[in-house]
Design a protein around this nucleic acid. Sequence first.
DNA 1: AATTGTACCTGTCAGC
DNA 2: TGCTGACAGGTACAAT
Length: 284
Amino acid sequence: MPELPEVEVVCRSLRQAIIGRTITAFQATLPKLLKLPYQAPELFAERLIGAQIVNIRRRGKYILIGLNNDDNLTVHLRMTGKLLYQSPEILRGKHCHIVIAFDNGYELRFDDVRQFGSFYLTGSNELQQINGLAALGIEPLGEEFTLAYLQSLIKGKTQKAKAFLLDQRHIAGIGNIYADEILFEAHIHPAESIGNIVEKINQQQLWQAIRHQLSRGIEMGGSSIKDYVDSFGQAGSYQEYHCVYGRSGQPCRQCGTTIERMTISGRGSCYCPNCQRIMTSARH
DNA sequence: AATTGTACCTGTCAGC
DNA sequence: TGCTGACAGGTACAAT
């Protein structure tokens, strides 16, 4: 579900829903989702109750909820996590594991079928204690992510292009869907060594595809493959425009060739064997 | 440095 | 109607 565009859309909806609200209750029926402090519902409750939500930010696929007591509640949705802002009158779902209640009676509910989601509560100056967050690479939609920066990242690397895009230490926020779509737009085969992209025109195409796919994903409210929705329950529509993700066996939208699938980095990777060729320029 | 396998979980879908 | 296996938006860790 949630890659950079979906997480960004969730953050935007959360800002509308809960900025300025004061927390009145906290309940975790699946404490193992609390990673820091580990499995400590009482500690979370103690520090959260009475605190007011002052800001909400995104970093990679992490959601950072800033509180007026200088604490930060950080959430990672992993595969199937959802943050839903709902009236207490709406029945909680079967997979609702964490509930944060507010002064207006509404609740922020964490719903997660696969139970992979993560909650971290730290001081705002202790965010580096969250390992995955501390290790994140550059924000691809930020000003600092220039073509030159991308060139410096890929130079000399032999990682496969798909693995490179999924590696959060290089660029933060790209997941399996957008990686496939980016490589299709950039005409790069997922198994191509990233360091083989040496022509400036190809590097530029990759840079543009990263920015373009992610920002279009946000504009369309994200990709709702199975059940992704924002905190108001709103689905996205970018899945209607996917060219390769989830389309193996179907004809390429550009050339009609059958989309193929292979496994890279343990993830299914869909690509058009005609539009995305392995470069032969690896020879000397 | 890069890659593979395993683990964490539940649900869905295709095939028999 | 079952049953089985493959697979699913992510990441951490161990082994090679």
